[in-house]
């Protein structure tokens, strides 16, 4: 028995199956792919499920035989979801509400990160502690006075209600971006800045002409993450913007209500009532812009940590 196992052919077979120092065996590779596919399925399944159901026509929806393959491509759900969501308007609102504060936030947090990384001053530790505090404090602990303040200033429902905090470095999850910029600037060599200073450049000029160009990846990563987070944020947007601006996620959370308004229950036949398929079309339309952005910029998402060098030490 032992002799057979030590036979060179057996050794080779074992090497292929279980691997050796040089490469992985087949068993390991199969297990690896099985796990990768299983995990991938966890993430893709809801999206697929949502998409498949959103293109089912009413008879397919009721037919228990039709699970994963609809009998036909049916765009009616999307047509109605598109109208219920008031898509062009809410889409533009969402883009505006996420892009503008993100741009401002990226710029202001980079200023703060640069100040913390390049200058020595008293109270820096305190600033870091407060920075962490702004990340930890739950929004509902500060939102009511903010809302009342905006009410007094007549800014409720105005995009400025989201832009002003971003302008003062208190945008959504600002602390993370300050830390990203701090890390970036701290790890950049100082030499260029010092020689520019000897040539008589002012600090602001050094910041704009030397620091900013060398931190472009950090700006891009901050901007896209900030955009995604602003896009998905619903707690603050509902409180500050309700009645003025309606973003896509906001419209989605009142989808059933909006549907009733557009298609009153008494006036439409049973196939036109609100069903799962329409809801899922709505959800899909909601994440579609993010998916497009993700696939176009995937390289920036997937490699963002390497690009900014943030690990959080």
């Amino acid at each position: 028995m032992m002799n057979i196992l030590r036979h060179p052919a057996a050794e080779r077979a074992r090497g292929i199956l279980f691997g050796n120092r040089a490469h992985r065996g087949i068993t390991f590779t199969i297990v690896l792919y099985a796990l990768l596919i299983a995990i991938g399925f966890v993430y893709l399944q809801p999206l697929l499920f949502m998409f498949i159901n959103s293109i089912k026509d009413p008879s397919d929806l009721l037919n228990p035989m039709v699970q994963w393959v609809p009998t036909q491509l049916y765009a009616g759900n999307y047509e109605r979801a598109y109208r219920v969501l008031d898509y062009p308007n809410t889409l533009m609102a969402s883009i505006f509400i996420s892009v503008v504060p993100s741009l401002i936030q990226a710029f202001v947090t980079s200023l703060v990160g640069y100040g913390l990384a390049r200058y020595q001053f008293r109270g820096k530790r305190l600033i870091f502690v407060l920075l962490l505090a702004t990340f930890i404090i739950p929004p509902q602990n500060t939102v009511i006075p903010q809302m009342l303040m905006y009410r007094d200033l007549n800014l409720l429902g105005n995009p400025l209600a989201l832009i002003l905090p971003a302008l003062l470095g208190q945008g959504y999850r600002s602390a993370i971006f300050v830390l990203i910029f701090y890390q970036t600037f701290v790890s950049l060599p100082k030499v260029l800045e010092e020689s520019a200073r000897l040539d008589g450049a002012t600090d602001l000029r050094i910041f704009f002409t030397i620091a900013v160009p060398s931190a472009i990846p950090a700006y891009i990563v901050s901007f896209i993450f900030s955009t995604v987070w602003y896009w998905n944020e619903t707690f603050l947007t509902v409180i500050f913007l309700e009645g003025g601006v309606t973003t896509l996620p906001m419209q989605l959370s009142s989808f059933a209500q909006a549907y009733e308004n557009l298609y009153p229950a008494g006036t439409v036949n049973i196939f036109e009532r609100l069903n799962e398929a329409v809801k899922m079309s709505g959800t899909f339309l909601n994440i579609l812009p993010l998916l497009v952005m993700y696939f176009v910029l995937q390289h920036w998402f997937v490699e963002s940590v390497e690009m900014t060098g943030i690990t959080g030490e």
Binding site: V108, T109, L111, V112, Y114, G115, L116, R118, Y119, Q120, F121, R122, K124, I127, L130, A133, T134, I137, N141, T142, V143, I144, P145, Q146, M149, L164, P165, L167, L168, G169, Q170, V178, D203, F207
Partner: peptide, 28 residues
């Protein structure tokens, strides 16, 4: 000079912290 410039860079954030975090927190 260095610390003044340092404060200058973080000034916006400090104002923001007072107006949008510290003050509302105290009020809450």
């Amino acid at each position: 000079r260095e610390s003044l410039y340092g404060y200058g860079f973080i000034l916006l954030w400090v104002i923001g912290f007072c107006v949008f975090t510290a003050l509302p927190l105290a009020q809450t």
